[in-house]
Computed example of a mutant assay.
Amino acid sequence: MSNQPNPSISSNQQTILVTGGRGAVARGLTALLHARGVPYRLASREPDSPGTVRCDLTDPSTFPGALAGIRSVFLYAEASGIEGFVKEAVAAGVEHVVLLSSSSVLSPDAAESPLAAAHLAVERALEASPLRTTMLRPGAFAGNARGWAWSLKAGRPVHLPYPGSHCDAIHEADIAEAAFAVLTDPGLGGRAYTLTGPHSLTFATQIAVIGRVLGRPTAFEEVSAEQWKSEVDGYIPGPYADALLDYWAASDGLPAELTDAVEQLTGHPARSFESWVEEHAAEFAPTA
């Protein structure tokens, strides 16, 4: 989707391509661009709204049309087509790419981890290119809590193999605002930012926060890694499930390292996990 600049925006401002158009961060980013009159083009593998162009990051044939006339890109990390995307972006005259990466790339074994390998491969491809690149490396999305919604809606305890595992629970709106900042302020680009929420919370604490916001009891039940893996079989591929279990085991009882990058980029402290739950409380409400 491409919107026209308002009178307060320079007429020569260049259009930004926003990929992953159905994702929460992309939706938040395009809302900010629209509100500020910044021209953009929304792209998705499966366009579901008028004006959205098709850009399947695994299909190089969709790149030329999406990139025509584009000078900046907000890019989701898809490794399988990144070489073709870089080639087409350079040919199209793209000057700046803002990558939605992951803090998992900072792990010593990132190249071997199913959770980090794709992000790392895309980072390396961009770093090897002539494109000016900004890396946004968020930790755990607050929205990951949606994985507990079914149990909580049914009034059942959430099964957790490592209830004491910590994460930094970052609000997707903060990631969108950070992306907006680096896309519209040239002085902020060309570097990497590790984005975190304001607190390190255990899974058990997050479930308690959901209960406080909902005003009703919420509970968890500690289960073995083997039981949890069998319960998610069919939803989470085995290698990813194993990688998650390893990550949770490593962070069990170990607070997440926090940064002030969100405040640095947006001018305000990172939003709390509680604020995210308040905005999404209906998703955890009991079924009728």
Rank of each mutant, 00 (worst) to 15 (best):
T62V: 06
R271K: 12
I70M: 12
V94Y: 02
R54K: 11
R45D: 06
L265T: 05
T196C: 06
G69N: 06
A77D: 07
R36M: 12
I82H: 00
A26V: 08
G164C: 06
L244S: 07
P186Q: 06
S2M: 14
S103T: 12
L258I: 09
S80Y: 06
H280L: 05
A140I: 10
I207F: 02
T52P: 01
V25M: 05
F273S: 02
P163L: 08
L29P: 00
A241I: 08
K87W: 10
V262N: 05
C167S: 15
E46C: 12
L29E: 02
S72I: 02
P163R: 08
F141A: 13
E127R: 14
V209A: 05
Q227V: 13
T218D: 03
S129I: 00
G197N: 09
T15W: 02
P5K: 00
A43K: 00
Y235F: 15
S10D: 15
F284I: 10
G164H: 02
A178G: 04
F220Q: 07
A204W: 00
L33W: 10
R41W: 03
Y40D: 05
V73C: 07
G143N: 11
Q14I: 01
S49G: 14
E123S: 05
V262M: 00
A154D: 13
N6E: 09
N3H: 12
P161K: 07
V38N: 04
G20S: 02
T52W: 01
W150F: 14
G81D: 03
T133C: 12
V90H: 04
S165P: 06
R124T: 11
L258C: 09
G147N: 14
I70Q: 10
V97F: 04
E127V: 13
L33V: 09
D260Y: 08
L214Q: 02
A192I: 07
L265F: 07
K87R: 13
T58A: 15
W148K: 01
P108F: 12
N12I: 13
P39W: 06
R71C: 06
S107R: 13
D59C: 01
I70S: 01
T134D: 07
H268R: 14
D174E: 08
P130Q: 01
C167M: 14
A89E: 01
A250S: 13
E283A: 15
P161E: 04
V98A: 00
A68T: 10
M1K: 13
A24V: 13
P39K: 06
L195P: 01
D246C: 10
F203C: 11
V223R: 01
H159G: 13
E221K: 15
T62R: 07
V182D: 09
A128C: 03
A43P: 02
